[in-house]
Simulated scan of single mutants.
Amino acid sequence: MTGIPGDLSSLEQVREAFLFLSERLPASLQKPRVAIVCGSGLGGLATTIRNMPRAEFDYSSIPHFPCLTVAGHAGKLVFGLLDEQLPIVLMVGRAHYYEGHSINQVTFPIRVFKHLGVDTLVLTNAAGGLNPEYAVGDIVLLNDHIFLAGLAGTHPLRGPNTEEFGPRFPPLSDAYDLELRRQVHRAWREVMDAKSERKLHEGVYAFVGGPTYETRAECRMLHQLGADVVGMSTVPEIVVARHCGIRVLALSLVTNNAVLSPVPRGDDSRIQEKPAKELDAILREGKANHEEVLEAGRLAAIDMQRLVVQTVSNTFNHD
């Protein structure tokens, strides 16, 4: 985040937020090793950590933290212990670029996590499925991304570089930690019922600015570029995390399937005699809405939570 004349610098803002939190955290929670970002409908992850010791902070109380406006995002940091010994912090709800925040405000919490001592970031999100093999409720382990906005200059690292955060030109070819992804596949076999129809995939996430869901032509374009899922978050956070030297694990919950077929033409002979209400039904095919996203998230949340908890437990128990 680059400041403007008269504003605190990004580094000073991060330090203020860090000091606010560290002065209020009990000793056992002072240095969380893992941060988990809970996406749409996935805030239930906060129930997986112990009640004591525990500390919660509304974003509105933390200096310089962005405030949220989206249903399904509570807007609080929750500190606690996983497996009675591993200190973690959960970000229950995230800020989005489409809410009017700058790309730097969206990623501000990640730099605070780095100052707190976090070395592993787990991100979850709700996403639209572009890959025809994906079903609603499937989970996609991300192994790469397409950041068209970043390629065009809407990038969280644009501007003067602060060496305390990371290098001027960080590589992203290794953004998605291979050992963490291996642990996810192992955890999946441990927590999932063999009879479950839910599947785990690996795939590529395309970031879009939102808040509109994508058109059919945009979905076809993204799929042809190599994207398997599409969403409005996560990638900017990953860029900043890697810039800070934090290793990354990211999981998408498929909450709707994108329609890749073209919109019917108005002169198509097959629709000429159909009543208007049937035409509307044709156009509504695959139409996404935020309520459906949240509902799909609720139905799959328990499996996602179990997978994340098992993966983190396995990883740090063998650390």
Rank of each mutant, 00 (worst) to 15 (best):
P109Q: 09
L82W: 07
M91R: 01
L45I: 13
R158Q: 14
K114I: 12
L279H: 14
R54Y: 01
F316A: 00
V136S: 00
L81Y: 06
P275E: 12
G44W: 06
V239A: 10
L151S: 11
F57H: 00
V106I: 09
Q13T: 10
I4S: 01
M91V: 03
L21I: 15
V204I: 14
M304P: 00
R182S: 12
V78I: 07
D7H: 04
L249I: 05
V70F: 03
H318F: 07
H290K: 02
L130V: 03
A281F: 05
T154C: 14
R94K: 05
M52G: 11
R186H: 15
D267M: 15
A74F: 07
P262A: 08
G100E: 10
V106F: 07
Q105L: 11
A206T: 07
F113W: 12
L8Q: 11
A126C: 00
Y213R: 03
G3C: 01
V191Y: 06
Y98T: 04
E273I: 02
T315S: 08
V229L: 03
P160A: 12
I271R: 06
A300C: 02
H115V: 09
M221K: 09
P170C: 10
S28K: 10
E163K: 14
V184E: 05
Q105R: 14
I62L: 07
K274V: 08
E218V: 09
D138L: 04
L148H: 10
C38D: 04
V230S: 02
F316Y: 14
R306I: 00
V70Y: 04
G297R: 04
P264E: 09
G153M: 08
E278D: 13
P236R: 04
E237V: 06
P66I: 08
H64S: 09
E292P: 00
P63V: 08
G245I: 10
Y59W: 03
I146N: 08
N125L: 01
G93F: 01
E23M: 15
M221E: 06
P236V: 03
S261I: 07
V106G: 09
F165D: 13
E278I: 04
E214Y: 02
G231V: 01
A281C: 05
D144N: 11
R189N: 14
E84N: 13
E197A: 11
R182T: 12
G3F: 00
V208H: 03
K195A: 15
H96N: 04
D58L: 10
P109Y: 08
T69P: 02
I302H: 11
P236N: 04
A241K: 14
V308D: 02
S261M: 12
P109G: 08
L142K: 02
F165S: 09
A276S: 13
F18P: 08
L29M: 03
S10Q: 09
S9R: 08
V308P: 03
N51R: 14
V259D: 10
L299D: 00
P262R: 06
A296G: 00
T124R: 03
V230I: 12
L148I: 13
Q305L: 00
R182Q: 14
D267T: 15
P275I: 13
V14C: 13
R242H: 15
S269E: 15
M304V: 13
L253Q: 01
L25P: 12
L299E: 00
E12I: 11
V136W: 00
K114C: 12
V259T: 15
S233I: 05
